[in-house]
């Protein structure tokens, strides 16, 4: 009986697997274009922490890169604390303060799709992530994107930045109030202090103010962070201006 039962069980499994494989083969032939997303879904399911290294994984070089560090890449120093140091001090130099303005005529502003900055968030794996002007699919595939209807860092209003929750902005879940957000552009280094982290509906227009009178930054991504498929909520991280040259449009 046991042998007979086992034989039937194996037959059952074999038929089920055969049906599944046959079905997949048919679907593959008909929908081969979705094979890549299937692989992406598998990697999404088995990976808890996506790589924050933008030099690994799938990236595209099909974009104009306007970013040039305005100074040497920031290294942990005695007067430039990282997330482990005094959170109330973003790292002001003890020497004379740097010029806090920059002329707009000296800046090459980006067009849609151009990389123009890199963004880092202290205490997280978000380090030197490529930041693009525009937040379309292509830009978010290669990094994070600034909404083109918002303002550039230094323009004195809101800079709205988005990124995928299974990629660069997955680590937004680790951001704490008081953490520093650093945006490095070709025309200056900007520092913002996180003041709030909130979950809101994507359709909630009160989540942002694109005509704010003060310089600020908003980072957001889909929420929950491990949700598959489309979600109606977003995780917003709000940052107030701390330092960086103000752009003068001459």
């Amino acid at each position: 009986m046991n042998f007979k039962f086992g034989k039937k069980l194996l037959t059952l499994l074999a038929v089920s697997i055969a049906f599944a494989l046959t079905g997949y083969l048919i679907l593959f032939l008909c929908l081969s274009g979705v094979l890549s997303p299937v692989i992406s879904a598998w990697s999404l399911l088995r990976t808890e922490e996506p790589s924050a290294d933008t030099e690994s994984g799938e990236t595209s070089s099909d974009y104009v890169d306007l970013y040039r560090p305005s100074k040497a890449p920031s290294e942990p120093s005695s007067d430039a604390p990282s997330g482990d140091e005094d959170p109330s001090d973003p790292g002001e130099s003890s020497e004379e303060p740097e010029d806090d303005t920059v002329l707009g005529s000296e800046i090459t502003f980006p067009r849609l799709g151009n990389k123009f900055a890199e963004i880092s968030v202290d205490g997280t794996t978000i380090q030197h992530v490529s930041m693009f002007f525009g937040d379309g699919k292509k830009q978010l595939k290669n990094g994070v994107g600034m909404y083109p209807g918002s303002s550039f860092p230094g323009m004195g209003s809101t800079c709205l930045v988005s990124g995928h929750n299974n990629r660069d902005f997955h680590a937004l879940k680790d951001v704490e109030i008081g953490t520093f957000i650093r945006v490095s552009t070709s025309y200056g280094e900007y520092v913002y202090r996180v003041t709030a982290c909130e979950v809101k509906q994507a359709t909630d227009s009160s989540a942002y103010d694109l005509v704010a009178a003060e310089e600020n930054i908003i980072l957001y991504t889909c929420y929950p962070f491990n949700e598959l498929g489309l979600t109606s909520k977003r995780y917003f991280v709000y940052g107030e201006y701390v330092s960086g040259p103000k752009i003068i449009l001459d």
Partner: peptide, 14 residues
């Protein structure tokens, strides 16, 4: 203004 920044639609299809 606010984009879809979760898993892409194709993954949902998958």
């Amino acid at each position: 203004v606010i984009k879809k920044t979760g898993s892409e639609v194709n993954v949902t299809v998958a």
